[in-house]
């Protein structure tokens, strides 16, 4: 089947999609956007997190056909998204904070965490530690022990506060 959708602001079309394919597969293998990661494909790790009409979801659990006509933002589009929020720069603040705080090791969980953290900071610009933990509880990381991820999200929040 054919699927039309908007990804990171651009209309996209995928052809010959098998009906059982996930949005994650379409993004990675058909649209050349492998930033969203395929770590568990059962909604237990959050590595494939994208925003579907603004809402963070596991793209591995969205059937490709369900994305028809909808808007998707992936990690590849985070900087643009931040730009539209007038948080311009080469990188979204949360991306820069992940680099600066040492929150990236192997990096496989990073795209999903960034999409989830960015969305949380949009909703809750001044989160408590427990708010951060709850919002990111659907994103597994095996390298960092999460401490530097906490640091990164706090840093991004603090920088956003300063910028305001």
């Amino acid at each position: 089947m054919r699927v039309n959708l908007t990804v990171n602001g651009r209309p996209q079309q995928a052809d010959d999609v098998w009906e059982g394919e996930s949005l994650l597969y379409v993004l990675r293998e058909r649209l050349g956007l492998p930033g969203s990661k395929n770590a568990c494909e059962q909604g237990e790790c959050g590595s494939c997190t994208v925003r579907l009409d603004g809402v963070p979801v596991c793209s591995c659990l969205v059937a490709a056909g369900q994305a028809e006509g909808r808007e998707v933002v992936t990690v590849e589009g985070l900087a643009d998204l931040a730009g539209r929020r007038a948080e311009g720069g080469e990188l979204a603040p949360v991306q820069q904070a992940f680099i600066d705080a040492g929150a990236v090791q192997c990096g496989f969980c990073t795209p999903g965490l960034l999409v989830a953290a960015d969305e949380m900071l949009e909703r809750n610009p001044n989160p408590s530690d427990e708010d951060i933990r709850e919002a990111l509880s659907g994103n597994l990381c095996r390298c960092t022990g999460y401490e530097k991820i906490m640091d990164a999200v706090r840093l991004a929040a603090a920088r956003q506060q300063e910028a305001v």
Binding site: G20, E41, Q42, G43, C60, L61, V62, A63
Partner: peptide, 23 residues
Amino acid sequence: IAGGTDVMVEINFDHRRPEHLLD
């Protein structure tokens, strides 16, 4: 299939191959 949080796991892990998915 609505949220897909059960059905897609079954499809991804080859536990289920329905003839029709009803979105």
